[in-house]
Each structure stands twice: as C-alpha cells, then as structure tokens.
Amino acid sequence: MSDIIRVLVAKPGLDSHDRGAKVVARAYRDAGMEVVYTGLHQTPEQVVEAAVQEDVDVVAISILSGAHDVLVPRIVNLLRERGRGDVLVLVGGVVPEEDIPALEQAGVARVFGPGSRLEEIVEFTRRCVRGQG
C-alpha cells in the first residue's frame, strides 16, 4: 500500500508546551507523512472531531501538563464512539512511569517520554499503521 499516512498531532487540555508537538510534527512530515496540527488548548471532543473529519491513521497526543490520566482515555473512548477505534493512538511528553500501564490499558499503543529518538517514533508509527493496513 502506497497511501500516504495521515497524522493528527493534538495538544489537548490547558498545556502550552508545544515544542515537542512541533518537533514530532516536523519529523512525521520529513518522513513523508501528512500532518494536521490542531494547535493548543483543544478539548477531547475537538481532537476527535478533527481526527474524524481529517480521516487520519494516527492521533499523536502531546501532553506535558500531567492531565494525561483524564484526557487520553476520554479521547480513546470518543474515537471508539465515532467508529474510529481503529486509529493508532500515541502519547508523548511528560508522563510518569507508573501511569503508563493504565494508558496502555486504555488503548494507547505506546508512550514516548522526553529524549525519545524521532527516528524511533517515526519507525514505530509506520510499522503500526502498515501492520494494521
């Protein structure tokens, strides 16, 4: 399949740390993907509506505020409600080690913390999307 991978890079909640989101967005673009960036301060509803309309393969959530435990499961559930439970959900940013299992339980494919290598993020994303396809 040569279809271009589409990614939504989302910053839900009140968090204004956007460097990581922008770095990851650029890495995806440089890897030949189409990236929709929604900007700061999105509600989970807005993130999911954008994911549906843009028909993305991946929702990449960047979150450094500590509110991941509430926002991320909400996004995953809304995606399922809208019939897009197939979307690959990734999380990056500052997430304490002990919170990761719960997020993975909720349906997040993987959590990438500070210092994650961009090549690895891109490679993992591509593998997951192509594997499903």
Partner: peptide
C-alpha cells in the same frame, strides 16, 4: 503544499480555524 523533497506536508490551515472547528 506538499514538500517536494519528502512528499510529506504540514497542514496548518486548520490551526487558524479554531472558531469554526469547534
């Protein structure tokens, strides 16, 4: 625009459509 070098793109228009996007 799609980047002619990588084939990828950052689609940034939605970023400025926050009123309607809600």
């Amino acid at each position: 625009p799609t980047s002619p070098f990588t084939g990828g793109a950052i689609l940034g228009d939605r970023l400025r459509m926050t009123r309607a996007a809600g």
